[in-house]
């Protein structure tokens, strides 16, 4: 069935988003850089490799425990560059703000952006501001683009993943999603939930320095770990096996998921990467992560198998199996 109107779900990072990109955008803009559909485009200029990415931020509420739209706008773009092996250098910042938005909030957001940019070692070198009439936007939207230089010798890409690779994440899953949902629902029980928003370029540079056999990295943002793995399994046409008992998930995140009927594997992260590397490098990568402040709870969660078709199979805590597919529908609580 073709949709004749855009649905919210087209922006959810699940199957419909995928279809929209594959059927509407890619055929019209087609070129080899775009077609790779990784987190950043990798560009060759004068024998040097650059990565280039863009992302728009529309989070609601704009302020949530552990961050605000500004920290997301810097960290998200920095991370998209870093997972492609890039050293992020420059960002742009486009702000669309609604008439009547509190000036003090805008100041706080920009202070946060400056602070995160300094922490990540990037400069915001160009920008744009548009103000729209009340009701034409919901508070504030931010777009950032970023450029970085790639020095890691081998290409980080889904295509480089091979059977036997191990899968490592740098910490607890679903923190950002849970914090935003809790803020949105005004749930008082969850005052200790904090978004994990963080720039991960330092952590990633550390990994790339010690491990010559990293094959692919992704940041597990919208759609969470589940969506990223399902996407990768499909693109690589390889089976991925993960083990529920090794998933690092905070108790309070599990709690809110139990109450509202969410699956933490599909909750968004803003400071979590998934690393695919050769088994021989597993220990080094894990240790390097665990020594970094943003990787203390790093864990090896699964492996890449050789059998096709490409799908993700989760071994449940009690030893059963279930499939992990691209999420569908908006994230909604169950009703019964």
């Amino acid at each position: 069935m073709k949709h004749d109107k855009i649905l919210l779900e087209h922006g959810g990072g699940g199957l419909l988003s995928h279809d929209l990109i594959a059927q509407l955008f890619v055929p019209r803009f087609r070129n080899p850089y775009l077609e790779r559909l990784e987190d950043s485009a990798v560009l060759n200029v004068d024998h040097r490799k650059f990565c280039f990415t863009t992302d728009s931020y529309v989070v609601s509420p704009a302020f949530f425990p552990g961050g605000n739209i500004g920290s997301l706008a810097v960290c998200g773009t920095v991370n998209d560059l870093a997972v492609c092996g890039g050293n992020p250098l420059f960002l742009s910042c486009g702000v669309i703000v609604e008439e009547g938005f509190p000036m003090a909030s805008l100041e706080t957001i920009c202070d946060t952006m400056a602070e995160k940019a300094a922490q990540a070692g990037v400069q915001i070198v160009t920008g744009d501001t548009k103000v729209v009439a009340r009701g034409a936007a919901d508070g504030i939207f931010i777009n950032t683009s970023g450029i970085g230089v790639i020095e890691y010798p081998s290409p980080l890409s889904v295509k480089s993943i091979s059977p036997g690779d191990v899968i490592i994440v740098n910490g607890t899953l679903g923190d950002h999603g849970a914090a935003v949902i809790a803020a949105r629902e005004k749930l008082s029980l969850s005052s200790d939930l904090l978004s994990d928003t963080a720039p991960l370029n330092g952590l990633i540079a550390g990994i790339l320095q010690v491990s010559p056999h990293v094959h692919c990295m992704r940041d597990a943002t919208r759609g969470g770990l589940g969506a990223i793995l399902a996407e990768i399994a499909q693109a690589a046409q390889m089976r991925i096996d993960i083990d529920e008992k090794n998933m690092p998930i905070q108790d309070n995140v599990r709690g809110i998921c139990e109450i509202l009927g969410f699956d933490p594997l599909y909750l968004a992260n803003e400071g979590k990467i998934v690393v695919f590397c050769a088994e021989s490098d597993a220990r080094t990568v894990l240790q390097t992560m665990q020594q970094h402040p943003y990787g203390r709870n790093a864990a090896l969660i699964g492996r890449v198998g050789s059998s096709t078709p490409g799908r993700v199979v989760l071994k449940t805590i009690i030893g059963g199996e279930r499939m992990i597919d691209l999420p569908t529908g908006e994230l909604v609580p169950r009703i019964c």
Partner: peptide
């Protein structure tokens, strides 16, 4: 809710 939990924990196969 049982259908969902049975699927989620992979109980049928066990």
């Amino acid at each position: 809710s049982h259908t969902y939990a049975i699927g989620r924990f992979g109980i049928r196969k066990l």
